[in-house]
Design a protein around this nucleic acid. Structure first.
Lengths: 409, 409
DNA sequence: GTATTTATGAACGCTCGCTATCTATACTGT
DNA sequence: ACAGTATAGATAGCGAGCGTTCATAAATAC
C-alpha cells in the first residue's frame, strides 16, 4: 500500500483484482485443495501472476499450503497444493428466540467449527443478554477461535428488522424485546461488523445456499408464527424491509389486519397453536377417533400429524383443512414470484409427507408453474446456518474487491 | 487488439476497464455534455488516462465532441466537451399485440428517435408478420437510422415467453400466435441480438426506469387481461419464466385454475370485459341510475368509471366491488414482496382516482407496509418504452465490460 | 539408471497508468 | 491595447504489473 490511489483504477488495482480472482477460484473449489496449474487454468492468468498472488495470499494467511497428498500420485514433480485457510476469518452466527439461543462459528469455507444451543423457559430481556454472552463464549471456546479473530457476525431475531439501524420493529411475544439492542451487545463482545436480520430471511439464505446458486426460492418458516424468506439468485429480497410476512395474509373473505395484534390472520388460522386447537376440537367431536386416543387431554400439533399419518380420517380432515388454507394463502405469491422451489421449515415441517402432499395437491390446482415443494433438510439449524452464511457473504464481499465501476453510483 | 489475451486479466483489460469507466461516467450524465476535467473528477482517474480514453471513444464513434458552448463561459481556456453520440448504437423496441403493432427507435442516451403505431382489426398470424415489417421500416425511416446500425432489438408479446428459446408458451387470443417466430422474423431484418419478453415485464421495466433506480416495483397491466411485472433494483424478476401472472389468482374460495383456459379467475372477475359486464347488469337492475343513462345499450368499462366519478352510487358500488376483489387478490403478493410502489397501467388505468382510491383503501386493510399506489404515467407507450429500455441495457452490458470475475460461474 | 513428465523459479520485454512539466487559449483589469 | 492570470490540453519520464521464455528441480516409469 505504498501509494494511496484512493478511488480509481491504477495498476495496483489490477494486482488486487487478480489476487481476488485467484482467491475466488480457490474459494469456489473449497474445500478441495487446488494445484497452481489448476488455478492458472481456471483464472486464465499467467503462471507467474498466479504464483505471486498465491505467495501474497499465503503470507496474508488466507491460504494454506498442503504437502503433496499421497493419494494424488501423478507423473512428474508433485504439485504444491493450496486451499483456503478457514481460520483466517471465522464468522459467527447467532439465533435468538424467546426460548432458545443458538450460536454457531464457521470458517471461511463454510465448515462449522462449533454449534452451541441453549434452551430455557422464556427469559426476560435482561437475562437474555447474559445467556447470549455465555453461549457465544462457549461456541468460541469449542471452535478454539479467539473472539478478536471473528471477522463478521450476524444475529437473527424474530420480528421485522430495520436493515440499517438494526432495530427490531414489530414485536414478537416477549416483553421488552424491541428495547434490547442486540447489535450493540454483540459488537461489545466481538469488535467486528455485526448485522441483524429477520430469522425467516436467514433460514431462507441457508436453504438457498444448500440448494445451490441460482433460481428463486420461497422458504417458509412455519411454527407458532409464519414467516418466509425470498432468495433470488443467491441474494435476499427484502423489499422495503418487511418482505415475506406471509403470516399476515388474510384467509377469510372478511379478514382485516389489525396492526396492534402481533399475529396475523394466517398465523391465527394455521399456526401450530391453531393446528393443535383444531385437533382438540376434532377430538372432542370424535371421541372414538385415533386422534383422541393419541392426544388425550394435552393434544399437540405433532399428535394431529401422527394420527393423520396413521390414516385416521378425523386427523386427515384437519390436515386437509390446514393444507387448503395454507395453499390458498400462498398461491397468489407463488403465481407472482414463480419460484423454483418452495421449502417449508420450522416446527410444523416435522409433520412430513402427510402435510406436504396435501399442500402440493391444493397448490397444483391454483398455480401455473408448479414449483418443487420440499421440506427443509436443515431443520432447526437453518437460522444459525443462514446467519453464518450471511456473515460469510459479508466477509467475501469485503475481501473480493467489487470492481469499482459496478459499485459507483 | 494486438495480442489475443483471451479470457483473463492483463494490462489491456485494465485499459478496457478504464475506457468503460469513462464511458459510463458520460452515460450517467447524459444528455448533458461533460468537460474532461469533470470526467477526471468523476472517474478518479488521471487526466492523461481520461484523455486517451476519450480519444479512443471519439474514434470509435461512441462520443461526440461539442464546440465550446457560448453559455458556459468561464475563465481560462474553454474546455472541450464531449457527450454520448446516441446514434452510435441505436436500439429498436417492438410491441406486438393482436390489434396493434408499435415500434420505437431510441438512441443510446434513451432519447426516442421515432415511434410508429399501427392498429388493425385483428390480423392473422401471417398478416401480422407483414405489418411488423412495414412498421419497423417506417420507424427506421423516421428515425433516419439504417437497419444495419441497430445494435439490439427487443420484442414484446403477450403470453408467457421462454426467455432463451424465444418461444411464446401460453397462448393469447390469436389463433396461430405461438407458431410465429417473432425473433427469427426480426433477426432476418436487423442482424443484431434480438430478444423477446412478456409485455407486462417490459412495461414494468419502463415504469421502473422512469421512477429511478432502486427499490421494488410491482407494475400491473390491467386491461382485458391482467399481468404484472416485477422489477427489483432495476433488474427484472422472471422466476422460472412465468412470474407476475396475477390474472390467474383465485378470487373465490372454490376457484380452481383450468390450464386449458387462456384466462384466469382474476381476469374473469375484474378484467375490463368483466367490469363492463358488471356495469351492464347494474344498469339493468337500476334503470334510473346515471350509469344507465351514460352507458345506454353499449355500456363500456369507461362508462362505469365515468359514472362513478360523477358520484353515481350504483356505479360506485360496482367500482367498490372491483376494487375489493382486486385488492384482496393482490394483497398477499404485496405482503410477500413488500414493494416500494405498486403502479397500475393498461386500459383500466384510465379510470383514474376513482378506482385508485378504492383500491388503496382496501389494500390498507390488508397489508403491513403500505406501498405507494400510482397510475402509470406512460400510458400505452409503456411496453415499447420498456422494450427499448431492455435493448439499451443489453447494449450497455455488452459494451461496459462486466469485469470477468462477477460473471464467472 | 535413464528418460519423461510436471511444476517451480528467475530474467526479459511489453503495455499501461500516474506525476510533473510545458504549451495553448481566452477572459479580465489597467 | 496589453499584460496578467486562470484554466485546459499535450508531452515526457517513472514505476508497476503482466505475460513470455528459458533453465532447473523432483518424482515416476521403463
Amino acid at each position: 500500500m505504498g501509494k494511496g490511489t484512493l478511488g480509481g483504477g491504477g495498476t495496483t488495482m489490477l494486482r488486487r483484482i487478480n489476487v481476488a480472482s485467484v482467491l475466488d477460484a480457490v474459494r469456489r473449489s473449497a474445500p478441495a485443495p487446488l494445484r497452481v496449474a489448476e488455478l492458472v487454468e481456471r483464472t486464465g492468468l499467467a503462471r507467474p501472476t498466479v504464483a505471486q498472488a498465491v505467495d501474497e495470499l499465503l503470507d496474508a494467511g488466507w491460504l494454506q499450503q498442503h504437502g503433496p497428498d499421497s493419494a494424488d500420485r501423478s507423473l512428474g514433480r508433485p504439485a504444491i497444493r493450496v486451499s483456503l485457510r478457514g481460520r483466517a476469518a471465522p464468522v459467527l452466527g447467532l439465533d435468538v428466540g424467546p426460548h432458545r439461543v443458538t450460536v454457531g462459528v464457521s470458517d471461511l469455507a463454510g465448515r462449522k467449527l462449533s454449534l452451541v444451543r441453549r434452551s430455557g423457559p422464556g427469559w426476560t430481556a435482561q437475562e437474555l443478554l447474559g445467556v447470549i454472552s455465555e453461549v457465544i463464549n462457549e461456541a468460541l471456546a469449542e471452535a478454539e477461535v479467539p473472539a478478536e479473530d471473528i471477522a463478521a457476525a450476524v444475529a437473527a431475531s424474530p420480528g421485522i428488522v430495520d436493515e440499517h439501524t438494526g432495530r427490531v420493529q414489530l414485536v414478537p411475544s416477549v416483553p421488552g424485546w424491541p428495547a434490547i439492542d442486540l447489535i450493540k451487545h454483540v459488537r461489545g463482545m466481538l469488535d467486528c461488523p455485526v448485522m441483524l436480520d429477520n430469522d425467516a430471511n436467514l433460514a431462507a439464505l441457508a436453504i438457498a445456499a444448500a440448494r445451490g446458486g441460482t433460481g428463486t426460492l420461497l422458504a417458509v418458516q412455519w411454527g407458532e408464527r409464519l414467516g418466509a424468506g425470498i432468495v433470488i439468485d443467491g441474494r435476499l429480497h427484502r423489499g422495503t424491509g418487511a418482505a415475506g410476512e406471509i403470516g399476515f395474509i388474510a384467509t377469510d373473505a372478511d379478514d382485516v389486519i389489525n396492526p396492534d395484534d402481533s399475529r396475523g390472520p394466517l398465523e391465527r388460522a394455521v399456526g401450530s397453536e391453531a393446528i393443535a386447537a383444531l385437533g382438540r376440537q376434532a377430538a372432542l367431536d370424535n371421541p372414538q377417533s385415533r386422534l383422541a386416543e393419541l392426544g388425550g387431554d394435552q393434544l399437540d400439533t405433532a399428535d394431529v400429524f401422527a394420527a393423520a399419518a396413521e390414516r385416521d380420517p378425523v386427523a386427515q380432515a384437519v390436515v386437509q383443512r390446514v393444507a387448503r388454507t395454507f395453499a390458498r394463502a400462498l398461491a397468489p405469491s407463488v403465481l407472482v414470484l414463480d419460484p423454483t422451489a418452495v421449502v417449508i421449515g420450522g416446527g410444523v415441517a416435522r409433520a412430513g409427507a402427510v402435510l406436504l402432499d396435501a399442500i402440493s395437491d391444493q397448490l397444483r390446482l391454483l398455480t401455473l408453474n408448479h414449483p418443487k415443494l420440499e421440506l427443509s433438510a436443515l431443520a432447526e439449524d437453518a437460522v444459525v446456518t443462514g446467519a453464518m452464511r450471511m456473515a460469510l457473504d459479508e466477509v467475501w464481499q469485503r475481501k473480493l474487491p467489487t470492481p469499482a465501476m459496478t459499485a459507483t453510483t
